[in-house]
C-alpha cells in the first residue's frame, strides 16, 4: 500500500512537470492550430539555462528559474516571428514542417561544442534533498517544490486567461482571427504573447525537471515533449484544464507501468491508452465534439 502511494506521488511529480509543457502546447494549438514540435526543445533550453544559472553563474536557484523563463519567453517569440508567422496562412502542414525544422535546429545547434555540447551532464542539485516520513510515505522537498511551483503557475495562468485584457484577447483570437482583428485585437501581439507564456512555462518545467531527474543533454526534450503533447491531446487539445488532467493521467500511467509491469513497456502502454481514449472520445477527455458544418 505504501509502495503504491509512493508511486502515486512519483507519478504526480512527473505529471506536474508534463503539465507545464502540455500547457504551452495546448495554448499554442488553441490559438494557431499548430503542433509546435519545437516546444520540447524550448523545454530543453530552459533546463540547460537553469542548470548554468545555478551551477556556473552562481545565481540562487529561484533567480535561475526566472532568468531561464525570461530567456525562453524571448526564444519562443523569436521562433514564432521567424519560422511560423510567415506561414500563418500557408497550408497547415507546411508550418508543421517548419516546426520540425526548428526542433532539429535547436537540438543540433545546442549539441555544438561551444553551445551546450552533446554529452550528458549531471546536474548538481541547488538545494539539498530533504525527505519527510508521513504515515510511512516518503515525501521529498523537491516534490513539494514542484507541486507548489506548478500550482502557483496554474493559478497565475488562470488569472491571465480569465481576468486580464490579454487573456480575453487570447480567447478571442483562438475563436476567430479575423473577427478578433475586427474587434480591435492586435492578433500578432496576442500570438507572440501566447508563445512567450507557453515557452516560459516550458522553461520552468525544464528547470524543475533537471532538478528532479538530474541529468540533461540536448536531446532530452524530445520524449517529454512528445508525451506532454500526447497528454494535451488526451485531455482535449486547446483546453487548459484538459492539458493538466491529461498530463496527470500520463504521469500516473507511466509511473505505474514502470513500477508494477515493466519499465520497458512504459511508453507503449502510455501511448496505447492514448489510442484507446481517442477511439472512444475522439476529441479527448474534456473536449467537446464539434459537428462539422458543410
Amino acid at each position: 500500500m505504501e509502495f503504491f502511494l509512493e508511486q502515486v506521488i512519483n507519478g504526480l511529480q512527473l505529471g506536474l512537470v508534463y503539465a507545464l509543457i502540455a500547457l504551452g502546447y495546448t495554448m499554442v494549438y488553441g490559438i494557431v492550430k499548430l503542433i509546435n514540435f519545437a516546444h520540447g526543445d524550448v523545454f530543453m533550453v530552459g533546463a540547460f539555462l537553469g542548470y548554468f544559472g545555478f551551477t556556473y553563474w552562481g545565481l540562487p536557484w529561484p533567480v535561475a528559474i526566472i532568468m531561464s523563463m525570461v530567456f525562453c519567453a524571448i526564444l519562443g517569440v523569436v521562433i514564432e516571428r521567424i519560422a511560423y508567422r510567415p506561414l500563418r496562412y500557408a497550408p497547415r502542414m507546411i508550418a508543421l514542417i517548419s516546426a520540425i525544422g526548428v526542433s532539429f535546429f535547436l537540438e543540433y545547434f545546442c549539441s555544438l561544442r561551444f553551445v551546450f555540447g552533446a554529452n550528458y551532464r549531471v546536474v548538481q542539485r541547488p538545494l539539498s534533498e530533504v525527505s519527510w516520513q508521513i504515515g510511512g510515505i516518503t515525501i521529498t522537498n523537491i516534490q513539494v517544490l514542484i507541486l507548489v511551483a506548478v500550482v502557483a503557475m496554474l493559478i497565475f495562468l488562470q488569472w491571465i486567461v480569465h481576468r486580464t485584457k490579454m487573456g480575453a484577447a487570447m480567447r478571442t483570437v483562438s475563436f476567430d482571427h479575423d473577427a478578433a482583428r475586427l474587434m480591435g485585437v492586435n492578433v500578432d501581439r496576442t500570438i507572440s504573447f501566447t508563445f512567450a507564456l507557453g515557452s516560459a512555462m516550458a522553461a520552468m518545467g525544464g528547470v524543475l525537471y533537471a532538478i528532479a531527474y538530474p541529468q540533461i543533454q540536448p536531446f532530452m526534450g524530445i520524449m517529454p515533449g512528445l508525451k506532454a503533447f500526447t497528454a494535451a491531446v488526451l485531455g482535449g487539445i486547446g483546453l487548459i484544464p484538459g492539458a493538466v488532467l491529461g498530463a496527470l493521467i500520463m504521469g500516473q500511467v507511466e509511473t505505474m507501468t514502470a513500477a508494477f509491469i515493466s519499465s520497458q513497456l512504459r511508453d507503449a502502454i502510455a501511448f496505447g491508452i492514448l489510442i484507446v481514449v481517442l477511439l472512444f472520445r475522439p476529441t479527448g477527455i474534456l473536449g467537446r465534439t464539434e459537428t462539422e458544418k458543410v
Partner: peptide, 15 residues
C-alpha cells in the same frame, strides 16, 4: 557537428 544545424536551416528556408 554542423550537419544537423545546416540541414535544419535548409529545411526552414525551403518551407
Amino acid at each position: 557537428d554542423w550537419r544537423g544545424v545546416i540541414y535544419a536551416v535548409l529545411l526552414i528556408i525551403l518551407v
